[in-house]
Simulated scan of single mutants.
Amino acid sequence: MESVDKFKVVAALLLVVVGVGGYYALPADQGVLRVLAVVLGLALAAMVMWFSQPGRSFVDYARDSVKEAQKVVWPSKKETWQMTGIVFLFVGVLALFMWLVDTGLAWVFYDLILGRD
């Protein structure tokens, strides 16, 4: 990363810090201005990052991610309901199994080994 890009990244971070600092510096009854300070700090930081190499790389990565997400074959409504049913069935069977194991172990330890009633 070039030194100019490092400067831009540091400047963007400082803008975020200034925005958050402005939030805490303004009186509590000025809620809109406090939020506006943070939003303005974030917007200015985004603008500075937009013109840096790491910012452009991030935008390219985001575009590629959106393109890849569009290639995904999403399941139909019917498939989604079927898989949801299978998951619920499995959870029910597993819960029943764990209850049986717990009850069995409690019986073995408390009734057979310790002889409690």
Rank of each mutant, 00 (worst) to 15 (best):
F51T: 02
W74L: 15
D60F: 09
L105D: 00
V59G: 09
T84I: 11
D102W: 06
D5C: 05
L42H: 08
V59N: 14
M98H: 06
R63I: 14
E68P: 01
L112G: 06
T80Q: 03
L13A: 14
V93P: 02
V9L: 12
S57F: 03
D111V: 15
T80L: 06
V93W: 05
L100G: 13
V32P: 03
R34H: 08
V17W: 12
M83Y: 09
E2P: 03
M83C: 02
V17Y: 14
A28C: 00
W50V: 00
V39E: 13
G115N: 07
E2M: 04
M1E: 06
D64M: 08
M83I: 11
L33D: 14
L94P: 01
I86V: 14
L40V: 15
L40H: 04
Y110N: 12
F58E: 12
R116F: 11
G41W: 06
F97T: 08
V39M: 14
A25I: 01
M47T: 05
A62V: 15
L13S: 13
W99C: 08
D111E: 15
P27V: 07
V35A: 13
G115C: 07
A45P: 02
R56G: 00
W81M: 11
V17G: 14
L14S: 13
L114Q: 12
V16L: 11
P27K: 10
L26C: 06
Q70I: 10
V87S: 01
D64N: 10
L44M: 08
A106Q: 05
L36I: 13
L36S: 12
V48M: 01
P54Y: 13
V39W: 10
Q53Y: 04
G104L: 04
F88Q: 05
T84C: 00
V18H: 02
V39K: 11
D60I: 11
L33M: 15
W107P: 00
L26K: 08
E2R: 07
F7G: 03
V66I: 14
A11C: 09
L33Y: 15
V16E: 12
A95N: 11
V32Y: 13
K77G: 09
I86C: 02
V17L: 15
G19T: 06
L94H: 03
S52F: 00
R116H: 11
Q30I: 12
P75G: 09
G19M: 04
